[in-house]
Every structure is written in C-alpha cells, then in structure tokens.
Simulated assay, not measured.
Amino acid sequence: MQFIADLHVHSVASGHAYSTVTENVRAAAEQGLEVIALTDHGPQMPGGPHAYYFGNLAVIPETLFGVRVLKGVEANILDRQGTLDLEDQRLAKLDIVLAGLHTYCAPYGSVEENTQMLVNAIRNPWVDAIVHPGNPEYPVDFSVIVKAAVEFDVALEINNSSLTVSRKGSLPFCDTIAGLAKQYGAKVMLGTDSHFATHVGDFGAAVPLLAKNGIEADQVLNTSRQKLSDHLTRRGRVITV
C-alpha cells in the first residue's frame, strides 16, 4: 500500500515537539510524500500556541519543496460535551481538523463517559478525524465510536506513535478499532503523530494492523489525493489537495 500524505505532524509550536515547519515539510519531500498536514496542538495543551497562531497559518505557502501543505490543528477535546479548544470560526478556515483526548485537557471518566465525550466530538461538523482513539488512558466502547464515525463521516486514525513511542498499551485497542473499521466500513487515516522530523512519513508500525484486519487502500484517506480531497471538502469547504 502506497501513502501520499502524512496527516498528523507537529512543529515546535506545539510546545513539546522539536522540528520546524520547514524541517517537517522537507522531510516529507525526502520521503516522497505529496501532502503533509500541519496539525499543531490547540491552545489548551500546556505550552501550545495561542489561537492567533492558527489564523496566521495563511502565511505558509500552499506548496513547499513540491509538497502540498495543509494547514490544520489537532484540537483538544475539553469536556463531556465534546467542546474543542478552537472556536468554530477558526476551525472553518482550516484545511483539516483533527480532534483527540489528551491528558491535562480532557477529564478522565468511565467507559460510558469517555465514549459519550468522543461521540460528541465526532458530531462536531468541522472534525475530519479522531486521533489515537485507542488511547488506553481514555477507555471507550469501540463499537459505539466506530459506528458514530461512520454515521457522521469522520475518519479514525491508526496512530503510529501510539504503537512506538507514546501511549503505551495502545496496540490491542488499535487492533480492535481496525477490525471494527473494516466491519462497519469506517474511513481510516494513518498518522505518524510526528514530534520530530525524522518520523514524518514513517507508518511502519501501523501498516501491519491494516493488513491483519483486511483494510484495503480504498478505505484509507492518505492513499489518494482525490480520496483525501473528497473527505476534506465533504462539508462544503473549498480545499484543493
């Protein structure tokens, strides 16, 4: 399976990542990627950028080193209602919106509470994908999450970092999500969740889960520019990928 995009990448602006935008995009070009999404954490992440940062992403060229640069965010889910840490008017101007549960941002709860919190975020009309839904810190009912993702046309990420350097214990949960995504036909997104440029485009730990669960390229967003474009423009945004 060939991948044309890395859709989950952090720069120094996230506060706990170590490469610049230029370094990340150059790394994508060196890996032969056609598209990269800049998805720094939203402002409620400790050390994260002010909301103004996301408005000013417009100064970054659409193409660098021959790579299409999508301007986005990994928004933090803040409460049981699924509230995100950027207001709708800012989310509407971004090319891609990821949302996820993070320590210090989202409250811990029971399986039922965590599930409802994530479902409420999935219902947000600006959310394109839920990142690292297999995070063991926030146990959820995976069947409910996958069915909601299908209903609201939101992709679910298989996060390479969760299988390598972060969120230890994620593998069995990511495996379950991949199996349910295959069963119910949910869209899947692979993301490196790169916090250092050398990780950009490295999906080595995530790819085996696709093969194990029979997920083909037509179900994965970052195997085709057309597929990615169709997903990002499904709510009426004008985005050229």
Score class of each variant (00 low, 15 high):
Lys71Cys: 11
Thr115Cys: 08
Leu64Tyr: 06
Ser224His: 12
Leu84Gly: 05
Leu38Glu: 02
Ser110Ala: 00
Ile158Gly: 05
Arg167Met: 04
Thr164Ser: 01
Leu163Tyr: 10
Ala205Pro: 04
Thr233Lys: 13
Ser194His: 00
Lys212Cys: 00
Pro136Cys: 05
Ala13Ile: 02
Ile215Cys: 13
Asn213Cys: 15
Tyr184Cys: 12
Leu91Ile: 09
Ala106Ser: 15
Ala217Ser: 14
His132Cys: 04
Met45Val: 08
His195Pro: 05
Glu87His: 11
Thr83Cys: 12
Thr115Arg: 11
Phe65Gly: 00
Gln116Tyr: 00
Ser162Ile: 03
Ala13Thr: 03
Val188Met: 10
Thr176Arg: 15
Thr115Asn: 06
Gln116Arg: 08
Leu70Pro: 10
Val25His: 08
Ala121Trp: 09
Pro133Glu: 11
Pro208Met: 08
Val97Ala: 11
Ala197Arg: 05
His16Asp: 10
Asn24His: 00
Thr223Glu: 06
Ile177Leu: 11
Arg237Gln: 13
Ala178His: 08
Leu163Arg: 09
Glu151Tyr: 03
Ser224Gln: 08
Val146Asn: 12
Arg234Cys: 02
Asp6Tyr: 00
Gln219Phe: 06
Val12Glu: 02
Ala186Tyr: 03
Leu210Ala: 05
Val200Ser: 07
Asp230Lys: 08
Met189Gly: 05
Leu86Met: 12
Tyr52Val: 07
Gln116Asn: 01
